[in-house]
């Protein structure tokens, strides 16, 4: 049983931005039951800026905390800025994750990119170049 940082526990205890957005501009759906984590991320975009983000996650403490942190980090960012947010940034913002849980942060990055990909497809007809989620 890995030890989580206080920050992770804080986000697990009171996750931010839980839920779905009605008529979202983009949805990312990643993970699968085999690995034990499934994330859905919803974004609302206005003038190229992510004005709202929400998530639903089936998974461990780290999966819930990284989803919560990721939705916090993207709010107010432009699409270009949001694409620069890596899984490392999420891990750092959470004061670290146990090594075995790092894949949860990758999943959070994939969920966001999935949502942006969906948004771009809807608005420009073209998704993110060469984008596909990481293999578990």
């Amino acid at each position: 049983m890995p030890q989580y940082s206080e920050k992770v526990m804080e986000h697990f205890r009171n996750p931010h931005n839980v839920g779905e957005i009605e008529n979202p501009d983009g949805v990312g759906h990643v993970g699968n039951p085999v690995c034990g984590d499934i994330m859905e991320m919803y974004i609302k975009v206005k003038d190229n800026v992510i004005v709202d983000a929400k998530f639903k996650t089936f998974g461990c403490g780290a999966a819930i905390a990284t989803s919560s942190m990721m939705t916090d980090l993207v709010k107010g960012k432009t699409i270009e800025e949001a694409l620069q947010i890596s899984n490392r940034a999420v891990v750092e913002a959470l004061d670290g994750l146990p090594a075995i849980k790092l894949h949860c942060s990758v999943l959070a990055e994939d969920a966001l990119k999935g949502a942006i990909n969906d948004y771009l497809k809807k608005t420009t007809g073209k998704g993110l170049p060469n984008w596909k989620p990481h293999e578990d």
């Binding site: 049983m1 989580y4 205890r13 034990g36 984590d37 998974g59 461990c60 403490g61 780290a62 999966a63």
Partner: peptide
């Protein structure tokens, strides 16, 4: 998922175990 239940119970002072991957390392 098991670990999130385990952690939530732990926050209430209740100790259990799970067969979920997420707690096994």
């Amino acid at each position: 998922e098991g670990e999130s239940m385990l952690l939530s119970l732990d926050m209430e002072g209740i100790a259990v175990s799970t067969g979920s991957a997420c707690s096994s390392g």
